[in-house]
Amino acid sequence: MTLEYDLFWSFRSPYSYLVTPRLLELERDYDVRCNVRPVYPIAVRIEGFFKRVNPMWPPYLMKDTYRIAEMLGLPYAWPSPDPIVMDLKTGEVPAEQPYISRLTRLGVAATEAGKGLAFLREISGVVFGGVRNWHEGDHLKEAAARAGCDLAQLDALIAGNPDHYEAVITANEAAQKQAGHWGVPLMVFEGEPFFGQDRVDHLVWRMEKKGLKRRG
């Protein structure tokens, strides 16, 4: 029997980017299915979050994510532009968020097309992989094609029914909260949450107890 788990994931989360190759390897090597559930980042979901955050956290996050990327052999740089439009001095996050809104809706559309995890990997590899102005030119188009998606078709689907994609994102965020955590990446297997890019081994351990088998 193929086991399944939910993946709550954000296009602004470096840890989400860093975990995705391992989740693809997990699906490649084991009889398991990842249900991709894109959510908006906490900067959007929690009003005023970065006005209250401990000032020690952002510098540590940068050190930690660069270290993990080096350890994993992944290209890494903070996105330019940032997927979140934000005043870095005040922590103010305006309501209008063109980059993260498009990316998150695209994640939903690609998931509904059966290409969710591959799409996350390819797009985040552009956003966090050191590509400047990732939102311009053919960067996203080519990344989507590597995942087996047509970017223009996905954009057209979203333009034709934006409320549907927002409703899916809202439902994903509610399910994430119901699972018992607010952060990403969050893997949830049979109601049990596994938070963080360093919890893949714990997830596999739990699923092996439930009969997880290697492919082949």
Rank of each mutant, 00 (worst) to 15 (best):
S124D: 11
I123P: 03
E112F: 04
V127K: 11
V131F: 14
G129E: 12
V108N: 08
R102D: 10
Q97W: 04
R132Q: 15
H139P: 07
L106E: 03
A118V: 02
G116A: 06
I123V: 15
V127E: 14
L120E: 14
S124W: 02
L117S: 05
Y99L: 12
A110T: 05
I100R: 02
G114D: 05
S101R: 14
R105E: 11
A118D: 14
L120N: 14
K141F: 04
T104G: 05
L103D: 02
H135T: 00
K141S: 08
V127D: 12
T104Q: 08
A113Q: 09
E112T: 00
V108R: 07
E96R: 01
H139E: 12
F119A: 12
V108K: 08
S101L: 14
E136C: 00
N133R: 14
E122S: 07
A110M: 13
L120M: 15
S124G: 10
E122F: 05
L103F: 01
T111Y: 01
V108A: 08
R105C: 10
H139L: 05
E122W: 06
G107T: 03
G125V: 05
T111N: 07
S124M: 15
I123C: 10
I123M: 15
E136Q: 13
V131G: 10
R121T: 02
E136F: 03
F119H: 14
A110D: 09
R102S: 07
A118Q: 13
